[in-house]
Amino acid sequence: MFDLLKKLTQTTGVSGNEEEIRNVIKEEIKGKVDQITVDTLGNLIAVKKGNGKKIMVAAHMDEIGVMATFIDDNGFVRFSSIGGVNQYNSIGQKVRFNNGTIGALHYEQKLDDLKNLKLSKMYIDIGVDSKEEALKLVGIGDVACFVGDCVKQGNIIISKALDDRSGCAVVIDAINNMPKTENEIYYVFTVQEELGLRGAKTAAYQIKPDLAIAVDVTLTGDTPNSHLMEVKCGKGPAIKIKDRSIICHPKVKKLLENSAKKINIPYQYEVLEAGGSDPGAIHISAGGVPSGAISIPCRYVHSPVETACLTDIENAVKLLIESLCSFSG
């Protein structure tokens, strides 16, 4: 699992530019499903055929990042955010453009109060001294992802883009270990989740499944002076009750609960007060799709040091497999 996480998190795939990560995932699941297609928006859809219920599994493969908007005469690159980029998490970080160019992200020195920090007061330094030199490496509209190694320390994984490559890893591992089932399963690696659940929306419309389960990360309440939230790293995958985009269908909550009990893994409930996720778009698509989610507890979401527990990720795989097999309508 760690090797897979490392491979997935270290591949670039900023929302709207998911080619590279899509190809990596495609390689991982080749030959394990009956059909693999890429739709208009770029969602990667892998189908395991069957005569049973139609289930959609969604994990988004895009990640947050930045886009170059302006290059000044001295070669400094101004940028805009793609998805929810926090200015404070960005200070002193490295970003990597698709062609491999690395830049240092910092803020204007005359800023006397960090409280006033905005992304518009920040720039990317790619180590050149003219606009002309800069343009050889970075074009306006080029996107870059944050740089953040993937490391394992005991049971903990620290990396950039665990949101939601950890979810992608769960789905890939489930595909590779799926026992026989009559259910027809659509494994969808969605695009543009970070821009507003956009890939999941079009994917759900074309698939029109009987049920949808998403795998994504969720926030935790287990760090010093954190917001009150019951979810903790290492206490098992969380069954989503709600976030700002969805109140999960009671039947899906029940399915996930019963599956977790049956295979005897620890689980917790997620009541997320901020943020939305793919099932939010899926459940109101095409006349309504009962939807829910398995969430991986993750600290420091949307930073280059997202932190999750390996055992939670592994248990999420087991929970997903059991739920997919036991769903009968």
């Binding site: 009150l228 939230m229 019951e230 009750i241 709600k242 009541v271 007060e273």
Partner: peptide, 16 residues
């Protein structure tokens, strides 16, 4: 919606 239960039995909540 119930968000948590503290050690004294008080129930914290979030709005729907």
């Amino acid at each position: 919606i119930v968000k948590g239960i503290d050690e004294k039995g008080f129930v914290s909540f979030s709005n729907i």
